[in-house]
Computed example of a mutant assay.
Amino acid sequence: MVDTNTLTLPENASLFTRLRIATKILKLVKGNEGNPVYGQTLNACLDYDVYESLIQKLQHSEDWRRMLSKHPSLEAKDLDLAALERLPEGTLGHAYARYYRDNKITPFETTLKLKNDIDFVAKRYRETHDVMHLVTGYGTDVMGEIELQAYVQGNLGIWTAALIVLFGTLGQLKGRQAGVDTSEYLRRIWAAYRRGRASPLFLDFWFENHWETPVATVRARLCAPAELMN
């Protein structure tokens, strides 16, 4: 059994320490990709500077400043999916609850404690993954997952997302893992990246306050039109 204390990212960790811990996690994560300790710590190791930059970019946002003080959560323990599914069809909450039921998965969970603002950014980024599938319209198949990662890289500059796109592209070149031909794959990835670049940052959006809002309305607010990127 791995001692998770050796995977703990110290506050104000040096680049060397972050790379050392990231290397350990990359050796362990295969076959255990859903592990909350591995996932969040890997994000923090590779994207520490990115998260710092995002905090600076969002500091003018009142919603973001409120987030840093309130720490809203989309973790499983903070969601009532049954209540959300009773909301009218077409609303974000109803679609979100159905997303989990239809895909036979459960919401994000973590055991990591938040020590600072960077920990919160890392957590918030990971727990918005599923709701961003709904908002962007990208599917949960291989192609849709890579499209969402390309969108996130364009929008937030997350290096973890860029690595996933890179490995996905290498897999596609070896055997069409995304189920489309390579020219279509590359076109869609580039379009998703450009769409992310053209869209406002989504990290300061309180999804929790918009469960009764139509998905289409949230999409129009957060995402550049996909058709303009083709």
Rank of each mutant, 00 (worst) to 15 (best):
A226K: 13
Y99P: 06
R126M: 09
D3F: 04
R219C: 04
A224M: 01
L222P: 00
Y51H: 13
G31A: 14
F108K: 03
Q56E: 15
G179A: 09
L87E: 05
V215M: 10
V121E: 06
A13I: 07
T106H: 06
Y99G: 02
D204E: 12
S61Y: 08
A161I: 01
A122D: 02
A161Q: 00
L186I: 07
D130K: 09
E109G: 08
H133W: 05
Y38K: 07
N103L: 12
W211G: 05
T213M: 15
T136Y: 03
A216W: 08
D204P: 07
Y125F: 10
Q40R: 14
Q153E: 04
L46D: 02
A95P: 04
T91M: 10
N32V: 13
T217Q: 13
G154C: 02
N230Q: 11
R20N: 15
R188V: 04
M143I: 04
R187I: 06
N32E: 12
R65C: 15
L92P: 03
L222I: 01
L81P: 03
A122T: 10
Y125D: 02
G90K: 14
G90M: 12
G93Y: 07
G196K: 00
R66N: 12
W159N: 07
M67T: 06
V142R: 09
T23H: 15
H133V: 06
A82C: 13
I164V: 11
N209C: 10
F207A: 03
A191V: 07
R20C: 15
H71T: 10
D181G: 13
V2R: 09
V180Q: 12
M67P: 05
V215C: 02
K30E: 15
L46H: 06
W64I: 03
Q153K: 03
K174Q: 13
R86V: 11
N116K: 06
S69H: 12
S183Q: 15
G31I: 09
V131S: 01
L19C: 15
G39Q: 11
R221I: 04
E208M: 11
G175A: 07
R20G: 11
G157L: 05
V2T: 12
S69Y: 11
